[in-house]
Amino acid sequence: MILIVGLIILIAAASIGVVGVFGNMGAEHALGTGGDFSIFGYHVMGSTGSVFLAGIVVGGAALLGLALVMLGVRRSARARRGVRMSRREAAVVDRERDDLINQRDIARAETDGPVSESPGSRRHWFGHRTATR
């Protein structure tokens, strides 16, 4: 959200600056000789100082937009880094779990001997079969 707001402010300030420069070129737009400065139909009458002040405001808005964009990018990068670290930690836990399962299976095979997979020789939970009645 911060990234989008920052982009909107930055694009608006940049477009105002570009339109102000390219729309007011030439001798007829000189402020000192009775000319005027206009942006999007708004005419600025007065001194070059007032135009300079308006430029400072537009530059400040552009700086604010750029700061918001950088803040949003940093926050997104931090979130991606956290996801990567979580995935790495999950992979380590999975690997350790698989190692423990393999160790358990090896220990069972050493103590019980070979286990056949036939249906009649299935192991029961308590180590013996129930008596038939």
Rank of each mutant, 00 (worst) to 15 (best):
M1I: 03
M1T: 02
G6K: 06
L7S: 14
I8C: 01
I8V: 10
I8R: 10
L10K: 07
I16P: 07
V19N: 13
V19H: 07
V19W: 00
V19S: 01
V19D: 06
G20Y: 11
V21A: 04
G23A: 10
N24V: 05
G26F: 13
E28V: 00
A30V: 10
A30I: 13
L31K: 10
T33H: 11
G34Q: 08
G34M: 04
G35K: 10
F37N: 09
F37P: 02
I39D: 02
Y42E: 09
V44A: 13
M45Q: 00
M45S: 06
M45K: 04
G46V: 01
G46L: 05
V51I: 00
V51K: 07
V51W: 11
V51N: 12
F52Q: 15
L53N: 01
L53V: 14
G55W: 11
V57I: 05
V58T: 14
G65C: 10
M70S: 12
M70R: 11
G72D: 00
V73T: 14
V73M: 11
R75G: 14
S76P: 03
A77M: 09
R81K: 00
G82I: 08
V83P: 00
V83N: 13
V83F: 09
M85T: 02
S86T: 04
E89K: 10
A90Q: 03
A90R: 03
V93T: 07
D94T: 15
R95S: 15
R97M: 11
D98Q: 10
N102K: 10
N102I: 03
Q103W: 15
Q103F: 13
D105S: 11
A109S: 15
A109F: 12
E110K: 09
G113C: 00
P114K: 09
P114W: 04
V115A: 15
S116A: 14
R122I: 03
H124F: 15
H124P: 02
W125R: 08
G127N: 03
R129T: 01
T132R: 01
